[in-house]
Design a protein around this nucleic acid. Structure first.
Lengths: 209, 209
DNA sequence: GCAGCAATTATTCAAGTGTATAATTTCAGC
DNA sequence: GCTGAAATTATACACTTGAATAATTGCTGC
């Protein structure tokens, strides 16, 4: 008889995290259909049965994975804030740069994001997560836009900053997508320049390039 | 014995189109995993075996479906051009409006688009299709931007119009996504106003609202 | 060190998957 | 009307899927 495979006990949190990471890896590499319980288990270094132990159903695991993904994206953009300068104009410029250059720009991240977006229209829970994530990012951008406008002595009422944040957010999203998916279409540093100048014209401000 | 199901012969083109439409319906409703040969066949009103007759493999059918989807999106934006006014500023404004309002804004279309985007990073054929589609749309936008700038007597060299087209395209994409996915976040007509004003500031032009 | 519990693996199962092949039916050309 | 070829259906199959259950193992508290 082949001996039963040896194993080590990990904490619940570690195992759940490992399974979620494995799920995201599978989806990134082969799409949702590649994220089978067996493939996930192998990538997590575990047998399929364990999934059932930590998640009632595979659907639960996939949902947890998508929620984790969105949370991480939000946290990543928040963490980058700490390294930005205090001056509102430089701060906004740094924020924009981060959004349209690696490592935020990344084809794997964009594939995962697309997988999540696909679920949003038909899954209420996913829509709620997306809505919260979207608004959190946009609100942060709106705050920085308001600060930048105030510094420059420009009007910055709520109606104006809201509209500019919606447009600015859309601009960053669109640039992020294309930079991630068609990197060869853009020269080194071109995206950054385009993004900064577009924001400068959008806000009618001089932003440090 | 239950009698064998009666059928009618359709032309090859009609059947292929029906199968492709059925595939897109399945993906839109339940994601790629819902697009099984049986589900597709039922929706197309045929039996699963027929798929094999028109497509060597299911993968071929799915690939054809995605290519058709992208082609249709391009054609839809091209068709709308014919109904636009000739005046460059009004024409650009109309083009922008189309991109951020129904029927172009549509959650089903956005779910399908997300499904395609997910494939792009790991499927060269899909990337080629996406790249061609993206450039076709962007070039069209660049032409309209150049016309609008010329009309207004503003500089419109290639380097400038290229950067503005990349940014404008990203802006429209981002707004289209959010309008499609979170329609409740925006008041009636708000997206249109935001898009027009954002373009006006981006190009430093007065666009008809 | 040992008892017992929970974590983990192994095994099993029914349902669903894509595809290949055989059996029929439609329809165009004569 | 026949006939033959092509379109379509029906059937079969091997494999994968998610889940449920049983068997074992690692570990904590004593």
């Amino acid at each position: 008889m082949t001996p039963r495979r040896t194993f080590k006990r990990e904490g619940e949190e570690a195992r759940r995290a490992a399974l979620i990471d494995a799920t995201l890896d599978c989806i990134a590499e082969g799409g949702p259909q590649a994220a089978t319980v067996r493939a996930i288990a192998i990538k997590a270094g575990v047998t399929p049965g364990l999934i059932k132990h930590y998640f009632d159903t595979k659907e639960d695991l996939v949902a947890a994975a998508h929620e984790t993904l969105m949370t991480r994206m939000t946290e990543a953009s928040a963490a980058a804030l700490d390294d930005l300068p205090a001056d509102p104009l430089a701060r906004l410029a740094g924020f924009i740069t981060n959004a349209v250059t690696p490592p935020v720009v990344d084809s794997r991240a964009m594939a995962l994001w697309a997988a999540s977006m696909q679920l949003v229209p038909r899954d209420t829970a996913m829509r709620d997560v997306h809505e919260a994530t979207y608004l959190a990012f946009r609100d942060r951008l709106e705050g920085m836009i308001a600060d930048a406008l105030r510094t420059a002595g420009k009007p910055h009422d709520r109606a104006t900053t809201r509209a500019l944040a919606i447009a600015g957010n859309a601009l960053l999203d669109g640039l992020w997508i294309e930079a991630s998916v068609l990197p060869d279409q853009f020269a080194q540093g071109e995206m950054r320049t385009i993004a900064i100048r577009a924001f400068a014209r959008l806000l009618d401000l001089k932003l440090p390039e």
